[in-house]
Simulated assay, not measured.
Amino acid sequence: MRLTNYSDYALRSLIYLAVKPEPHRLANISDIADSYNISKSHLTKIIHQLGQLGYIDSVRGKNGGIRLACAPKDINLGVLIKQIEPDFALVECFVVPATNNETRKGQPDSELILIDTTALPSISKLGCVISPVCQLKSVFFEALTAFMRVLERYTLADIINNEAQLAELLS
Rank of each mutant, 00 (worst) to 15 (best):
Glu142Asp: 15
Val91Asn: 10
Ile113Ala: 05
His48Trp: 11
Ile159Pro: 02
Ser171Ala: 08
Ile81Ser: 01
Arg149Met: 09
Pro132Ala: 15
Gly61Phe: 07
Ala89Phe: 07
Gln165Gly: 09
Ala146Glu: 11
Ala69Pro: 10
Ser138Phe: 12
Leu53Trp: 03
Gly78Arg: 04
Gly106Gln: 08
Val96Ala: 14
Gly51Cys: 05
Tyr6His: 03
Leu112Ile: 08
Lys62His: 04
Glu142His: 13
Leu53Tyr: 11
Ala27Leu: 12
Phe147Gly: 03
Val59Cys: 01
Pro132Leu: 13
Asn162Val: 08
Arg104Glu: 05
Ile115His: 05
Leu120Glu: 11
Ile29Asp: 04
Pro23Cys: 03
Leu126Cys: 07
Ser30Trp: 06
Cys70Val: 10
Glu168Pro: 00
Asp31Phe: 08
Ser131Thr: 10
Leu126Arg: 08
Ala69Thr: 11
Pro97Gly: 15
Glu22Ala: 10
Leu114Ala: 01
Ala146Cys: 02
Leu68Glu: 10
Ala143Pro: 02
Leu156Ala: 03
His48Thr: 15
Asp34Tyr: 09
Ala143Asp: 14
Ile32Phe: 02
Lys73His: 14
Asp31Leu: 13
Lys125Arg: 15
Leu126Ala: 12
Asn37Arg: 11
Ser131Cys: 10
Pro21Gln: 07
Leu166Gln: 14
Ile115Pro: 00
Ser122Val: 08
Leu17Ser: 09
Ala71His: 15
Asn161His: 14
Pro23Asn: 05
Thr99Asn: 00
Leu166Ser: 10
Asn162Lys: 12
Asn63Cys: 00
Pro23Arg: 09
Ile32Arg: 01
Lys137Cys: 11
Ala33Arg: 02
Asp116Asn: 12
Glu85Thr: 12
Asn100Cys: 07
Glu102Leu: 12
Asp116Gln: 04
Arg2Asp: 09
Pro108Gly: 03
Pro23Asp: 05
Arg104Asn: 09
Thr155His: 11
Ile123Trp: 06
Tyr16Cys: 09
Asp116His: 06
Arg60Cys: 03
His42Gly: 03
Ser58Cys: 06
Cys70Gly: 00
Leu120His: 07
Asp57Ile: 11
Arg25Gly: 01
Asp34Leu: 13
Ser131Arg: 09
Ala27Asp: 13
Arg25Lys: 07
Asp57Glu: 14
Ser7Thr: 15
Val59Thr: 09
Lys82Pro: 03
Leu68Val: 12
